[in-house]
Design a protein around this nucleic acid. Sequence first.
RNA 1: GCGGCUGUGGCGAAGUGGUUAACGCACCGGAUUGUGGCUCCGGCACUCGAGGGUUCAAGUCCCUUCAGUCGCCCCA
Length: 435
Amino acid sequence: MIKRMKGTYDITSDIRYYQAIEKQIQKVSRLFNYQEIRTPHFEQQALFHRSVGQDTDIVSKETYDFKDRGGRMNTLRPEGTAGVVRAFIENKLYAEPKLPQKYYYLGNMFRYERPQKGRFREFYQFGAEAFGSNHPAIDAEIIAYAVTLLRGLKLKNVTVHLNTLGDKASKAAFEDALKNHFKDDIEHMCQDCQTRYQENPLRILDCKVDQDKAIMQSAPKTIDYLTKTDQKHFTLVQDYLKAMNIDVIVDHNLVRGLDYYTHTVFEIKVSKDLLGSQNAICGGGRYNHLVETLGGPEVPAVGFAFGIERLVMALKENDYPLVEDAIHLYLLILDDTARLKAVEIAQKLRLGGIITELDYMEKSFKAQFKQSAHHNARFVGILGENEVKENQINVKDQQSEVEETIALDDLYIELAQKLTKQRDDCKDCDKGESS
RNA sequence: GCGGCUGUGGCGAAGUGGUUAACGCACCGGAUUGUGGCUCCGGCACUCGAGGGUUCAAGUCCCUUCAGUCGCCCCA
């Protein structure tokens, strides 16, 4: 048997969670006025090297690279921002009159990693990018956008962790200070920290092994190395968030793995007992120089990305109320004459918006009844010799167990009325998720 | 890339060298003629992830491999 590739998965019954999330994404994106953008699943390898960073784990050991028949180096996208930025430049979207230019995307990403809980080789991300403004209010909006999505999904126990790296000058000064601080003690620290010291000193800060050591406690904080302007930017982001009633935890040890971040960085986490180690469901921040790095004009930007699988897991843990799939009518067929009639009726009802199913298995009467139950049919229609002869149908309401005989000519209008009435009766129908 | 654990029917799960591979759920069929959901009866793994080896004999031991899972790294 041919099996799926390592780290991939099929979405079957869980599709309803994905659909609920997608629906919420569309709704919230509309409210915040972000436009959908779709970009290719593969790009030139160089794009990711230049954007995400040569030395990041993502690029150095996790990309799916392949040479095509023309000898070009391609890479399956490991994240969404690079492609969106490339498209932004290539299509000259920076010249669009609506400012800032705001986009969101939803699509699969690929990383060659060892799969584990909440981590796959092909996974879905929902992300957003706002281009053109360096204003702290847009940093706050991006975070509010992410949080609003989660609120819409009724997700509990989420926390927003916020930090700032400052812009180039602040970042460089801080890195120097860090290196200097750890200079003498680095050999006593864990193996990983020693590597980080060389490659990405910022990451030493979120080490879990050496967390409690004195040297860590006394480590310099990003805020202490911010320029006045950068300091003000960060303060304002917090002010705007407060104005929107969004609680954040300022975490000066929060640094992020992608090279392009400047200023604001943030992560949204759910409690660890829900998702295990991979408890960050959203990460993002500002990247003021990426557009330029990739050959575009000087355009500041800020964005985020959600891991959809992690969101799905979190929703399940939260017992997100999915409405059960149900159909309106199941037609029970007793002989071939009735079958012809049933096919005719079903098509008419379906065109009128009534979800109809019928037997194609030539099952026994009883078995068909069971099938109607599997389909969660609200009504069961019985078509036999007598009904066809009299041009009528026996309809049973499975909710009230009331059974009545209806002329076939009136069937559509009768069912439509009963179903509409049911909708009116149900004031909370919109709770949970649509069917 | 590194480490731990696991792999038996659609799902959960017994079985730790020896006759026809428990059991539960689900599913299918039946319990008098056209009414499901309860109950009862019956059915449902030429086979134990794959390949090789040890043995008179392997789901059970060994090796390899694949996959899953959890953790590290990193990230969504």
